[in-house]
Design a protein around this nucleic acid. Structure first.
Length: 927
RNA sequence: GCCUAGGUGGUGGAACUGGUAGACACGCAGGACUUAAAAUCCUGUUCCCGUUAAGGGAGUGCGGGUUCGAUUCCCGCCCUAGGUACCA
């Protein structure tokens, strides 16, 4: 029988499904291993060949870990709330749940074709009430918690209330809004319910506050910072504006330091760690107040270089700064207002792009230098951002390039502050010299000056050491339909949680998925949707990241109705050991997940500070488009003549995308091309060497470029095992690469060779029970070692090559020994599960038992060379072959070498200086 | 600008701690089997010199360095990809 991937793969896929072969046992006596894929959003387009790359890698790893004796948790599910289903619903009226269901079924079918070893009994869908009940529950917990800086963790809000009523606000060290009140315990007790609630809201982890949000009018919703790229929405590229709205937020900033520290403890790719570090954006410095006597106020600035404070010659406010109006003098009013008008017209994008032009306006007012007391001018300029720090900076032209350029442009003072500064051409920020023109720190070094200044500023009550973060709290509301309802109702304008036993708060039905006439979110359309028939529910829904920020817990215990997961399950599975997914989630999902993980840990629901121990980014698979070249007539119109790639320059042509599925190794299938589009039916071709060669280009994979390759088509022709091997063979997992079906034949041939090892020339199964030869053992043990090493370091592509070498060697040896082939099947199982399952069965083992086999033990003795002839260099150049026993002592070796005829010839009487040994072998002789 | 990763044949890519660079595969060329095709198998394939051959030379983005020996380590530069940016 020939290798027939179609019948064989279908058979085993059905068997695995029917017998739940890959259901994860709760065999707690085995060590556990948790392998997770980033679950997909089920889009309408289905999977293309790039999507499963990471899934294949994680599947190989899971299967390998099972063979190594681990109890492996390897689940899959769907991040099924999201914008596209809702946009589609708006257009068609089709309920998002319906399209989502259809898309999931399609995804599932495609994934099943690839032969993954997921435990589907643990599947989760974020849009199912059984699941989002717990997303809502986590929201409730975060509404019911505050962040205690003393214990450095989140605690139930009751502990805060206790502190307020015993010692007042002074006793509390919390992460909170800036406008919190100061009160004694007596005052707290005298507050009415409403006032107390209003105050508590400023401390809650999930809180409601008027805040500036990214409003996208086209999508009708607010967006998180990570969903806005260069001032336009990530999805759709629509313009985004800043708008003040009452919004739910999550106090992720409370965790900024822990999120940063945790990065040192996890095994993640460096670029990703770096992205999160930048996103969190910790800067250590000081906040300094510049008093403005006439307003009885002060301009607070943040600086990382407090040591340069005597170099301050002016301060600059962002045009949006709240003090600008009050500071502007009558004479300067016109100029300042004109400037504000001008900058407000500039879009966020222009403002970022245009960093060359120097612009600004003098307010006419002066502030006092906090230490020297001299007057410094107050300017406004758009190089200062309202959204970072305090929206104001102290300008030190000698030390900061932007301040320098600004000072030069407006002819402001530039004060040198260090004896090593070179400031003729540009600012010099070096910290190496001793200070000059700097009052009491003159002569000090940087290390001495900073603590001295902080002490002085604290004494004057005009400054203190401060750590500033770039990260903002995460907006937690979307004015959309297809998301988790927020389990909150309003009484007297204040939010209250519904009762825990009332969860899940079901997503109500609406007549349309659009905002209401009065501009309320779609949930405002729900009929009779009131809490206890009288109170308004919150009408916004949760953002896309809510459901995905805890899903790895749900897989541990997906059917649990009383908890998000049982204590036993969480204690056993702990954290994800290996997480594979794309780097596009660096500052979204991966940050929010770490945040919620820490939050749930603080409340005592588990013990893991970090959710994902090791993370790998699979590279994106790009499309590879093919082109045909249509000949144009004199008027530049397309003819029905097409010229092959190599001859295209001899004609006047225009390149046209052609479906990559009718091109093989860049050779066009002419018949299929004629059927590709009606106007190509009468196509004529100018061929080279009898073939039509297509051009190619790497582009994004998309329908319009006719370069989408569906895994189903590959599986139809070559089988799932070939697809799996080929996706790995394509190159290193983490590297981005274009999909190119050229070369898949080689992998397919390999599997046919594997098949033939077990079958004789007539195609009959034929395996011998004879003792294998030394060479056969050697070939086997090489691959046992290689695959083990490769998988452990995630180098899947090199394993595929090693398999090919191994099978070629065994073919040359005409090896059909049971002992060898049986172990080969086990080793190959992770990569090609279908063919190996079939062969395992043919070898007489029970169906479905291969996944419980044990990975063979590598025996190094099989790899020891029996022949000792190997090449040796002479003075670094390869010269001759040497035959020498490996276990001789060095002196014997030296004497033997000197006696060697070739060596004597090369030495020509000179003495041997050195003999270089590597791994017991002589590599080089130096004379 | 800054951060990170990378630059190896016609192509995808190997070479794990410095040790015969180009494994393996594709493609290409030639051959075997076949009436023919498919399938399969064999040989060659970094470049240059050498008619074939024996043999020699160059060679991992560029220029230096360390070393008996460098794709690998160090210094300077060029290029590509991803991220990020008036972040004070």
């Amino acid at each position: 029988m020939e290798y027939n991937h179609k019948s064989l793969e279908k058979k085993w896929q059905k068997f695995w499904a029917d017998h739940q072969t890959y259901k994860t046992s709760d065999a707690h006596q085995k060590p556990k291993y948790y392998v997770l894929d980033m679950f997909p959003y089920p889009s309408g387009a289905g999977l293309h060949v790039g999507h499963p790359l990471g899934y294949i890698a994680s599947d190989i790893f899971s299967r390998y870990k099972r063979l190594k004796g681990f109890n492996v948790l390897h689940p899959m599910g769907y991040d099924s709330f999201g914008l596209p289903a809702e946009q589609y619903a708006i257009q068609t009226g089709q309920h998002p749940a319906v399209t989502t269901e259809a898309n999931i079924n399609r995804y599932r079918e495609q994934m099943d074709n690839i032969g993954f070893s997921y435990d589907w009994s643990r599947e989760v869908r974020t849009s199912e009430p059984e699941y989002y009940k717990w997303t809502q529950w986590i929201f409730m917990k975060s509404f019911g918690s505050w962040y205690n800086k003393e214990t450095d963790k989140a605690e139930p809000i009751d502990t805060l209330i206790t502190k307020f009523s015993t010692n007042g606000s002074a006793a509390v060290q919390a992460v909170s809004d800036e406008d919190v009140l100061e009160f004694t315990s007596e005052e707290w007790k005298s507050f009415d319910e409403e006032k107390q609630q209003r105050e508590l809201l400023k401390y809650r982890i999930a809180y409601l506050r008027e805040s500036t949000v990214n409003w996208c009018a086209a999508l009708g919703t607010v967006l998180a910072n990570d969903e806005v790229i260069n001032g336009v929405s990530e999805r759709g590229g629509y313009p985004v504006e800043q708008k003040k709205m009452m919004q739910w937020s999550m106090r992720i900033t409370a965790y900024a330091d822990r999120l940063l520290k945790g990065l040192d403890t996890i095994d993640w790719p460096e670029p990703l760690v770096e992205m999160q570090r930048n996103w969190i954006g910790k800067s250590v410095g000081a906040s300094v107040k510049f008093p403005v006597p006439q307003l009885d106020a002060a301009i607070e600035v943040f600086t990382t270089r407090v040591d340069t404070i005597f170099g301050v010659s002016f301060v600059v406010l962002a045009p949006e700064h709240e003090l600008v109006a009050a500071l502007t003098t009558a004479e300067q009013k016109a100029e300042v207002e004109a400037y504000i008008e001008k900058t407000s017209k500039k879009s966020e994008l222009d403002r970022m792009a245009d960093t060359k032009t120097v612009s600004g306006a003098f307010t006419g007012s002066f502030a006092k230098h906090p230490i020297s007391g001299r007057d410094v001018q107050i300017w406004i300029a758009d190089y200062v951002l309202a959204g970072y720090g305090t929206g104001a900076v102290m300008a030190v032209p000698s030390g900061d390039q932007r301040d320098y350029v600004f000072a030069k442009h407006f002819n402001l003072e530039i004060i040198p502050i260090s004896d090593t500064q070179q400031i003729e051409e540009e600012a010099d920020p070096n910290k190496d010299g001793k200070y000059i023109n700097s009052d009491f720190i003159n002569g000090m070094t940087y290390q001495e000056a900073v603590p001295a200044l902080i002490a002085k500023l604290e004494e004057l009550k005009l400054g203190k050491a401060k750590i500033n973060f770039r990260m903002r709290d995460a907006i937690f509301g979307r004015q959309r339909y297809w998301g988790e309802p927020v389990p909150v109702y309003f009484k007297n304008g204040l939010p209250y949680l519904i009762k825990e036993e009332e969860l899940p708060l079901l997503l109500p039905e609406v007549d349309k998925y659009l905002p209401t006439e009065s501009g309320e979110p779609p949930l405002g359309r729900a009929k009779d949707w009131k809490y206890e028939d009288q109170y308004e529910y919150e009408l916004s829904t949760m953002p896309g990241w809510a459901g995905s920020s805890w899903y790895w817990f749900r897989y541990m215990d997906p059917k649990n109705e009383g908890n998000f997961a049982s204590k036993e399950a969480v204690d056993y599975w702990k954290a994800v050991d290996l997480y594979i997914g794309g780097s596009e989630h660096a500052t979204g999902h991966l940050l929010y997940s770490r945040f919620w993980n820490k939050f749930l840990k603080d409340l005592g629901y588990h013990n893991e500070e970090e959710p994902f121990r090791k993370l790998i980014n699979q590279g994106m698979i790009q499309g590879r488009s093919n082109f045909v070249y249509r000949v144009l007539d004199e008027e530049g119109r397309g003819t029905n003549q097409f010229v092959s790639y190599g001859l295209r320059n001899e004609y006047n042509t225009i390149p046209l995308h052609v479906d990559v599925n009718i091109v093989s190794n860049d050779v066009l299938d002419l018949e299929k091309f004629k059927n590709f589009r009606p106007d190509f039916a009468n196509a004529e071709f100018v061929l080279e060497n009898g073939k039509y060669i297509c051009g190619s280009e790497v582009e994004k994979m998309s329908k319009s470029k006719f370069n989408v390759v569906n895994p189903d088509d590959i599986i139809e022709t070559y089988g799932a095992d070939t697809l799996r091997l080929y996706e790995m063979f394509l190159g290193p997992l983490e590297q981005a690469k274009p999909w190119n079906t050229n070369g898949i034949e080689g992998v397919y041939k390999f599997l046919k060779k594997v098949w033939r090892l077990f079958h004789d020339a007539e195609g009959n199964f034929n395996v011998s029970d004879e003792e294998p030869s030394k060479a056969e053992f050697k070939a086997l043990h090489k691959i046992i070692k290689k695959v083990e090493d490769d998988i452990e370091r995630f180098s899947f592509n090199t394993s595929v090559s090693a398999f090919m070498i191994c099978v070629n060697e065994l073919t040359d040896l005409k090896c059909n020994k049971r002992e060898i082939l049986e172990q080969l099947v086990i080793v190959l199982q992770s990569y090609a599960p279908h063919i190996t399952e079939e062969l395992w069965n043919l070898l007489g083992h029970g169906a479905g038992t291969l996944s419980q086999a044990t990975y063979p033990t590598f025996k190094p003795e099989y790899l020891v060379e029996s022949e000792f002839a190997y090449p040796v260099s002479f003075n670094g150049k390869m010269k001759f072959n040497l035959s020498l026993a490996l276990d001789l002592d060095q002196q014997t070796v030296e004497e033997t070498i000197k006696a060697h005829a070739d060596v004597q010839r090369h030495l020509d009487g000179k003495p041997i200086k050195k003999i270089i040994f590597v791994k017991g072998k002589i590599i080089n002789i130096v004379a």
